[in-house]
Write a protein that binds this DNA or RNA. Structure first.
Lengths: 208, 208, 208, 208
DNA sequence: AATGAATGAGACTTCATTCAT
DNA sequence: AATGAATGAAGTCTCATTCAT
């Protein structure tokens, strides 16, 4: 995860002319930005911080990204890409709907809690806080949520079940864990994901 | 909710000597700060914004609060106070544990989505983003979460049930709703709270 | 000329709240800006330069003017005010139309070449070069040109005389002198103004 | 006008070794610079703008011109060359001194208002604003003004006529028209030039 | 001849805070 | 309790220029 290869879809958003040379440092910048955005938030990170993290002067950053917001969008976009990929490759080998949902939860939680700085940013940074980037961010986020709608649609459930509420509850619980989860103590992301899935499926009153 | 009386516990944090007079404008400042913090976040709100909102100059604000962080702490503290009060008064008339839990969820969600700018701040602003205030904020937040631990402890559940996981799931789902809830369309906070409680209790496979 | 008293019409453009205290340094800033704008142009002057000229830090300047453009507008506005005043008080005691025109030329030229840094800015800085300020500047400049239209309207001239062309020629010649006039060598502004007026009146072939 | 061949006198100022090849893109750069300098001024034009206008990257521009100032000097020099040529070829077929002066005015005004981006720069950009280029620019400008001195010297005028004042007035009026002339409304450059010449010759009181 | 990347200085502006009055 | 002014650090971004390839 958090690899350093700029995907083609990302290249479309960087300053024109960049990433033609093979030795571009745009990927390093992206990585640094992802790390810093997910650790300190968007406003809590300065372009100086990002530039320093890759040994550049602040002005040089603008060879690769036209604005700080563009950097955020690029990180965000790749975050969605990567978390989508993680979830999809976790789900793909499975066919049983509940197993697929559980696998998705595990992949999601491992991404946003442990593996993937880019994916963390997707959960950490609120689109509304960065107006100039909110549009693109929301488009991406919706793309991801659509995946979850599909996963829930697969479940064999009683008619009239409000699947949307279930999705909002599940994803909310998962995402909010970023606010309290500490990697050292307690449960692993995997275990948590399984617990939440089980709760959603059977409820507190009907243990497995 | 969102009353304008500065509680004594707040007075302890303001500029020494201030807020002894009855006609202090500290309460107005607190209200304005709560509104702005919950709407734009802590970093997205400037001292100027707050001062302007009450018709003051920025410098004058420092007659009432020593720093911006102190203002945040005061708001946060009152937010916890108020959401505690809301939950407690919703729960108090009830005795059945599940009904109490549901009532708590409704009170919580109505507070953080609709009624109470102070309570919103508690969910909106991450302690880690404001190091100088993180300590006090965390203490308060823990106080609130303890209430929820009690509510869950009351529930008649099979032995070995992981009540902590349930609490984290439920509160996470509730809190995260701040990120997607829109007051105009769809469900009310009350309805959402009930759905989430029901899901937690019986799961998707065992509809009420 | 170039006095340090901020007129009421200027105060309206200054950051709200300024110039209530008697010891505001806004007038000094205005003076410094006028000097620097007329010497190095708008783009050639930095806010640092202006602040340094009055012994301030660059940020402090923003207590008095919200933007660099606002400073320019304030200077420009006062420049027009002052050159209007200079021309009007030169013209007022006279009744003979040609004498009034000549006096106006003298006042204009002395203002923009010698006396008045504010007035110089009016001739020096092109509105189109500062888009954010162009509107206000043009309004003011038109106000001034209207005065000249009146002066030319008074002249007893053959019917069908194109007074507008005459105005454009005269004012153009006067204003352009900023590009070549050197205070040390040659003619005084007064002498030049008289020569231009005479030429315009009688032409090269009909010397006085 | 505004031809694309770099004259030998220009080559002397470009980066050593450049522009020896026939397919150099220096002429395109020169054209682009002339367009941009005359439209937005020297400071209002960036090296990036110029490079972009010819589909180059900023760094590549330095294969042809050592500095931005050199570009300006090259444009300016060619501007003077071209306006000289325009005036001279307008004047040459004529012998009557006043007719020659009028033709010169028409050629001058058409160049700086309509035809010739290079010539426009000569009027638009003040040497004093670009210290490193001021020397060369002033030399060129003086060369041009000498032409006008000759034209005025030819006129049959009463003794003791101040021909220099007349030249300054006429050229000033012509040049300043760049500040107010709009190609759409009103008079053509040709008509204006004739009006100004007539005014200078006979004055307002002695219409033709 | 041209490129992509980087430099380094400096641009305007914001902001929490201080302080004499 | 409040003001107007100022501070000082830091913010994002621009720009002419350089240089290895």
């Amino acid at each position: 995860m958090a690899t350093s290869r700029a995907s083609s879809v990302l290249a479309a958003r960087v300053t024109p002319g960049a990433s033609v040379h093979a030795n571009s440092r745009a990927p390093q910048l992206l990585d640094a930005a992802a790390q810093l955005f997910c650790r300190h938030g968007y406003e809590g990170t300065t372009v100086r911080d990002i530039a320093r993290a890759v040994g550049m002067l602040p002005g040089s950053l603008y060879c690769h990204f036209a604005t700080k917001e563009d950097l955020l969008v690029a990180v965000y976009l790749r975050g969605v890409e990567q978390i989508c990929a993680a979830v999809q490759s976790a789900v793909q080998p499975l066919t049983e709907p509940w197993a697929r949902l559980e696998a998705a939860c595990v992949a999601h939680l491992e991404s946003i809690l442990r593996d993937d700085a880019y994916a963390r940013v997707v959960v950490r940074v609120r689109p509304a806080d960065v107006p100039a980037a909110a549009g693109s961010m929301t488009v991406e986020r919706n793309r991801y949520e659509a995946m979850w709608s599909s996963l829930l649609a697969e479940l064999p459930l009683p008619p009239r079940t409000d699947r949307k509420a279930a999705r909002l509850m599940l994803l909310g619980a998962l995402n909010w864990s970023q606010n309290w989860y500490r990697p050292d103590g307690g449960a692993t992301p995997r275990k948590l994901a399984r617990q939440f899935t089980a709760l959603l499926r059977q409820g507190l009153e009907n243990p497995a």
